[in-house]
Every structure is written in C-alpha cells, then in structure tokens.
Design a protein around this nucleic acid. Structure first.
Length: 486
DNA sequence: ACTGATGCGTC
DNA sequence: GTCGGAC
DNA sequence: GTCCGACGACGCATCAGT
C-alpha cells in the first residue's frame, strides 16, 4: 500500500469533525489493505508505529529534513523497514546514522508525506482520531460490534492483531499484559459516595502502577503502559515469588517506604525503584480463570491481605472522610473509591473507580506566556508562574496551560500582549501584573527552577482581578508549604 | 571523564 | 498526570 | 460516557562533543 493513500485518508479525517464520518473514512481505507498491510495501516492511522520507539524526536527530525519528492512512490512497508533499521541502530555514531536513514526516507517522500511522517514520529498526528476511533473503524471494516473488537484488543494488547483472525478466540493469558483500568476524579468522598453508594475506599499510593503476572517461580512486572519493567523492580519480584499462589495476575502500585513505613515522595520513589515494594488492590486472573467479569467485592477477597493497601468498605460519609484524613496524615496521595459490584473495565476510565486527591492553591503572578500549538495556535497558552520574592522580583515555580476555556484563552492573550516587554522565540515576557489562582497537587524539589521548587500538576482556577502582584503569595509561603509535606 | 542535548518513561 | 471541547 | 489534544514536572539512558 502506498503511503500516499494513508496520508490522503489522514488529511480527510483531519478535515472532518464528525466521529462517524472519520470512522467511515478509516474503515474504507482498511478495506483496501492487504492482510500483510492492515496492521501497519492501523498503527500509522492511529498515531503509533510498530517499533513503538526509535530514538528519534522533534530535534532529529528537524535536522533530517531534506529534498522533497514529487511523485508518491513510498509504500508503508518501506517506511516500516526504514523505521526498523533506525530502531536497531545503536552505539557510537548512531545519532548520525539515524539522521542519515531519516534523511534518505524523507528524500523519497512528498511534502504531504513528510509532514505526515513528522507528525507520526513526534506523536502529534492531530487528525482527531487515535486508537479509540480506530477500534470503531476496525469494527466497521470487519462488520463486527465495536464492543467485541474492544474486548479482543484489550486481551490481545494490540489492535493490529485483532484486524484479522477470530475475535472471539482472544483470552486472558499469562505474560500478555492487559491495559489497566483507570479512574475518574472526584473532588471529595461525598461525590464518590453519591456516584457509587457503598464503596470500597483504599489509600491511593503515590508510586508506579504495576501489573504482575506469576506462574510458579516465573514472575514478570508490567507498567501502566504495558512496558516490561521486571528488571527495574527486584523487590516486587521477590515479594511476589513468596506468595502462596500458582498462576495469578495482580494489579497494584509499587512504592518505596522509609524505615518507619512512611511512603517516600514520588520523586524519591523514582530514584529508588529497585527497592520499591508492591501493594495489590485487584486480581484479574487466578489459576486458569479470568476474573475480569467478577464483581470487585469478590475479586478483592482473593487478594493477599498482607499486600493490600489500607482499605475500608462503607457508605458513611463521615467514616470515609476520616479515612481520607488518615491517608493524608500517613503521607499518601488520597483515596480511591470503587464500586463493589463493578467489573474490571480494562483500559477504560469510565468505570466505577474514582480517585480523590488533596489539592492546594496559591495566588501567583504571570511572568510570561508561550504561543500555543495546534488548536491553540495564535493564542498565548502556557503561562510562566512566579511567587513573589519579598526581597524584590518573582521566583518562577513552573508553567501551566490547563484549566483555561477558549474564552479565557482569548482574554488572556489580549491582556498579556498589552503587557508585553520582550520576546524570545515563542515566549512572550510580560510586566508581572496579572495574578492568577493556581491549584496543584504538591511541590517537588526542582533541579531546574531558581527557587529549587516546582509545582506538580498545576492548573488555573481563575484570574484574581481583585489582587495586585504585591498581594500574591510569596516564595516563603511556598517553602513553608513544602515543609509541611505538600 | 565530564557536560549538555535528546528521547522516553513515570506521574 | 489535568483540563476543556467535541461528539 | 468517551475520546482527543492541549501541554506540565522529574529521573534515567544514551550519545555527541569537549
């Protein structure tokens, strides 16, 4: 199949707003793909490549730009072969060689094809369709219910594999990881209870998600994105080997504990993954049987109790609230709330799981803003945030672009341009006059920012028109917050 | 041997 | 990871 | 309910250049 056919479909998809229309376009292309092409077509049109990573990003792609072909001759198999070569290059001189292979590939591509490859390889396809839409397209092309394709994909771990073959034949299998179930956010336990009724509340541990597969002494550990991280978490492996179970798939979180049993901060956990220990909150498979469709309350009974995070079952808001306070006091991130009757909704966020975290707010000053990309093109989007320095000036604590409606984006662009003092690249520096209320989930030590501190998950709540920069929070306040564990 | 750039992973 | 927009 | 696309923080591995 010619790359140009894919690119043409991609452009049409990008130019179409309706999802159903996108699905039709994609399905039509898939019907034209041969059996040895369809997996590649699916990957490229959902913004992924077969190699998953090839050590090439925006910088390398920019340097590799070269001639433009006039006739589209590249096939998707040729693209795949080149990407495979690039992925395989390693060691001294590999950066140059990757660049050479890329230049060579680009020189055989038309302008539209180069643009497509650039977006594909930077992970910014921007056609308004990725795997979620592609699942529907595969279903349409094969004339199957989308739910069956979705289920097979979750079990196969790969949509391409589902494009051909018997969809009903996919089963839960040891050492083939399943996409983990995700959670929605709730602002407090009351909201979670209102949604779920009686629920299981569990400490939310601030580590990394793990899915552990065990058959006898054989143990493998997978990350949230299904990477095999067995070699990085030896303590998890050792711990699981000690469990008195035969075949099992467990879902949980790995964190590092200090000597007194309190959790280390996330940053420290990342530095010391080798000593991370597992906590398990779900079980997906046991001794030959899938448990995905069992109710949560039944699954949790099969968990190794010694390795569960602290948990209660309650419908009482006061009990849940004090459990939340206990979690925070213990240095944890907050709570998870889970519906007792819920199935394991692999790969989905829509199910009966809620996360409840604690957030702080600060009033900070906008120091600069960056021009947006894509749908934010032409708008000042990413804000540079500073705390007031009592000795004069401001200390930058991070950036955010989140929490802004289109309307607010428009407003802030006008406001900031009026206050512009200089430009450097895509950054517009402004007089520090606008105060903005920022929510965030914690402070981290920063090796990069001047105050040695940075905000985690910062987002805009609202502009504080009622405040002047001299009313903004100071860096001292922020340091104090950091000291209390925020 | 060290530093900075780059890519990619976790959240 | 969070958030807003669009379907 | 769901999906997508805006982009944040750090830590680590690898490679190029000094």
């Amino acid at each position: 199949m010619l790359l140009s056919s894919l690119v043409s479909t991609s452009s049409q998809v990008a130019a179409t707003s309706g999802r159903l229309a996108k699905i039709t376009l994609l399905a039509d292309l898939l019907k034209q793909a041969g059996p040895d092409e369809i997996a590649l077509a699916i990957a490229y049109l959902s913004g992924t490549i077969r190699q998953s990573k090839i050590g090439v990003g925006w910088a390398t792609l920019n340097k590799a730009k070269s001639y433009v072909a006039t006739t589209p001759r590249l096939t998707i198999q040729e693209v795949d072969a080149t990407l495979e070569k690039i992925a395989m290059t390693a060691g001294k001189g590999s950066a140059t060689e990757k660049q050479r292979l890329l230049s060579d590939l680009f020189s055989r591509a038309t302008a539209e094809e180069q643009d497509f490859l650039f977006r594909l390889l930077t992970g910014e396809l921007r056609q308004g369709a990725l795997e979620g839409i592609m699942v529907e397209a595969v279903a349409k092309a094969r004339d199957l219910p989308a739910s069956e394709v979705r289920r097979a994909t979750m079990l196969a771990g790969n949509l391409g594999a589902v494009a051909s073959g018997d969809v009903a034949s996919f089963k839960v299998e040891l050492f083939r990881p399943i996409k983990p179930m995700l959670a929605k956010t709730a602002t407090d336990v009351d909201e979670a209870l209102a949604e779920l009724g009686p629920a299981s509340f569990e400490y939310k541990l601030d580590g990394i998600r793990i899915q552990v597969h065990k058959r006898g002494a054989e143990v493998r550990v997978y990350s949230r994105t299904l990477n095999d991280i067995t070699g990085e978490v030896p303590q998890v492996v050792a711990s699981v080997k000690g469990l008195k179970v035969g075949e099992v798939i467990l879902d949980g979180e790995a964190i590092v504990l200090s000597a007194d049993g309190r959790p280390l901060r996330f940053q420290e956990t990342m530095k010391g993954l080798g000593s991370a220990v597992p906590f398990f909150f779900d079980i997906l498979y046991s001794d030959g049987a899938s448990l995905l469709d069992q109710p949560y309350s039944a699954r949790t009974k099969l968990l190794p109790e010694a390795h569960r995070p602290p948990h209660i079952v309650t419908a009482d808001a006061n009990a849940a609230r004090s459990f939340f306070d206990a979690a925070i006091a213990a240095g944890q991130e907050g709570l998870m709330a889970k519906g007792l009757e819920s199935k394991y909704d692999a790969g989905r966020r829509g199910g009966a799981w809620f996360k409840i975290k604690k957030a702080n707010t600060l009033d900070l000053v906008v120091l600069a803003a960056e021009w947006g990309h894509g749908r934010r093109h032409g708008r000042l989007s990413n804000l540079h945030l500073g705390a007031r320095d009592p000795n004069g000036g401001f200390v930058m604590l991070g950036k955010t672009f989140k929490g802004l409606s289109d309307e607010l984006l428009e407003w802030q662009t006008q406001q900031l341009l009026e206050k512009e003092v200089k430009r450097e690249g895509h950054i517009v520096y402004v007089r520090p006059e606008l105060v903005v209320e920022i929510a965030f989930n914690g402070l981290q030590d920063s090796p990069h920012y001047p105050g040695g501190l940075a905000l985690r998950f910062a987002r805009v709540i609202r502009y504080r028109d009622d405040k002047k920069p001299e009313d903004a929070d100071t860096i001292e306040t922020v340091r104090k917050l950091h000291g209390t564990g925020a």
